[in-house]
Amino acid sequence: MAISFHLNGRPVSTDADPATPLLYVLRDEFQLNGPRFGCGLGQCGCCTVHVGDEAVRSCSVPVAGVAGQAVTTLEGLGTPEHPSVLQQAFIDEQAAQCGYCTNGMIMQAAAFLKQNPHPTEQEIRQALANNLCRCGTHLRFIRAIRRAAAQGVS
């Protein structure tokens, strides 16, 4: 039985086993680059997507759990030619070393800024406390999020 949901604004459906984590459906079936496997345990945040307005770990949500819902990935926020304000802020701050974790940073921060459009630095650090970066790019992520917030992104 096909599972239907909205993906980046478009209706989609999948015949995947309902227990399949959303991450693998997004990557293998819909060929998305943004959400990536980091731990499969919900610990690192590399696979973060939005379900509705909420940031969730797509490695730990079965695809059946998003039936009928709106799923947004990094690709749904903007494109290289037309990035979102937050994505542009990450570009302007050159906020990457390897960049593998940045999907999670942007998706977590985008959801957070909707709830708290003018956060303090401490609030940003707390909001990203469960997103891991190994290269040590944290300060650039914080600067990018502050830059976007200053521009009134939500």
Partner: peptide
């Protein structure tokens, strides 16, 4: 000069694979 890295817009938007993990 602090020339920006060319791959960064693709990283930030998912608009290009960038990583071997995304090579299909």
């Amino acid at each position: 000069k602090p020339e920006p890295r060319l791959e960064i817009p693709g990283i930030m938007t998912g608009g290009s694979p960038v990583y071997i993990q995304n090579l299909r």
